[in-house]
C-alpha cells in the first residue's frame, strides 16, 4: 500500500474508532462471579474517560436465578474516585445468595451518567483472603490469632473483639451478651424503625445511650472491661467515616460478642 493510502486508511480507522468510542459505555464493572460468604470481593471498574466518579448506587440481594430483587440489603457503600483499571474491595456480610451491585458512573466534565451492574454469587463456606488493596490501610497484625469470626472492613474488629474479650477474667465475661445487646440496640436506634423514625438523630445521642447502656451492662465489672472498651474505641474510631460505618461497626462488635446479628 502506498504511503498516502496508508495515511488515508489510518484516518478512516481513527474516525471509526472515535465514532464507536462515543457509543461505548462510560464505564464497566468487572467483579468475581462468586465468593465465599463473609468475604471481600475485589471489583474492577473500567472507564473510557479520565475523570469518572463511581458510586455504588445499590447493593441488592436477588432472590432467584431470574434475578428478581427481594430485599435491599445495604445502602450505597461509598463514593469512589476511579481511573480506568482501578479497583476497590467490598465486604459482603449478608447471607449466601446472589447480589446485584449497581454502579453509577458519572463523568462530571461531560455531564454523563451511566449504570453498570454486576452480579456476585455469595456461596456458603469459609472466607478466603484477598490480595491487599493499595488504597486501604493495613489491618492490625493478628497473625497469632485464629479468630472464629469473619474478617471485616473495620480491620478485623470482630476478631479483635473476641481476642480482647478472652483477656477479660472469665467471671467478668458473663456480661458479654448484655454488652452485645447494648451495641445492637444502639445500632438499631441509629436507623429508622418500622415507623420510619430514628431514635438517635445524632451520634452525640447514640454516644450518650451507649455510655448509659454499657455502664449499666458492665456495672461493677468496669475495671475488667476498661481495656476492652479502650481497644475497641481506638480501632473503631480509626475506621469510621459515615453514620453507616458506626451502625455496621457496632453490629460487628455485637456479633463478635455473640449478640444478635
Amino acid at each position: 500500500m502506498r504511503p498516502k493510502a496508508v495515511i488515508g486508511a489510518a484516518f478512516i480507522w481513527l474516525a471509526c474508532l472515535s465514532a464507536f468510542g462515543q457509543r461505548q459505555p462510560l464505564a464497566s464493572v468487572v467483579a468475581p462471579e462468586s465468593i465465599p460468604e463473609h468475604s471481600v470481593a475485589r471489583i474492577v471498574c473500567d472507564t473510557t474517560a479520565d475523570d469518572v466518579r463511581f458510586e455504588v448506587f445499590e447493593l441488592l440481594q436477588l432472590k432467584d436465578s431470574r434475578g428478581r430483587t427481594v430485599e435491599v440489603i445495604g445502602p450505597p457503600v461509598e463514593f469512589l474516585d476511579f481511573s480506568s483499571g482501578d479497583s476497590r474491595q467490598f465486604a459482603f456480610t449478608g447471607p449466601p445468595g446472589r447480589y446485584l451491585l449497581r454502579f453509577d458512573a458519572v463523568d462530571y466534565d461531560e455531564r454523563k451518567r451511566e449504570f453498570s451492574t454486576s452480579v456476585i454469587e455469595v456461596v456458603a463456606g469459609k472466607p478466603r483472603p484477598v490480595p491487599p488493596d493499595d488504597d486501604e490501610d493495613d489491618p492490625p497484625d493478628d497473625d497469632d490469632d485464629k479468630p472464629d469470626v469473619p474478617d471485616d472492613r473495620f480491620g478485623n474488629l470482630g476478631a479483635n473483639v473476641v481476642k480482647w474479650l478472652s483477656q477479660i477474667p472469665a467471671a467478668d465475661r458473663v456480661v458479654a451478651k448484655d454488652v452485645a445487646k447494648v451495641y445492637s440496640d444502639v445500632a438499631d436506634g441509629l436507623e429508622p424503625d418500622s415507623k420510619g423514625q430514628v431514635k438517635y438523630v445524632t451520634i452525640d445521642k447514640s454516644n450518650a445511650a451507649m455510655t448509659v447502656g454499657l455502664n449499666s451492662a458492665i456495672g461493677a465489672r468496669a475495671d475488667s472491661w476498661k481495656a476492652w472498651r479502650a481497644s475497641v474505641g481506638v480501632q473503631l474510631n480509626g475506621r469510621i467515616e459515615t453514620r453507616q460505618d458506626v451502625i455496621d461497626a457496632y453490629r460487628v462488635v455485637a456479633n463478635a460478642l455473640g449478640g444478635k446479628p
Binding site: 466518579r53 458510586e55 455504588v56 445499590e58 435491599v72 445495604g74 445502602p75 450505597p76 457503600v77 461509598e78 463514593f79 458519572v106 462530571y108 436507623e191 429508622p192 424503625d193 418500622s194 415507623k195 420510619g196 423514625q197 430514628v198 459515615t242 453514620r243 453507616q244
Partner: peptide, 20 residues
C-alpha cells in the same frame, strides 16, 4: 457538587413516613 452517597435504609424510612 456531585451527588453524595445516600443511605437506602434511611430513604426507606423516609418513604415509609411519606407513604402514610
Amino acid at each position: 457538587r456531585p451527588p453524595k452517597a445516600a443511605s437506602e435504609t434511611a430513604i426507606k424510612g423516609l418513604r415509609l413516613l411519606q407513604e402514610v
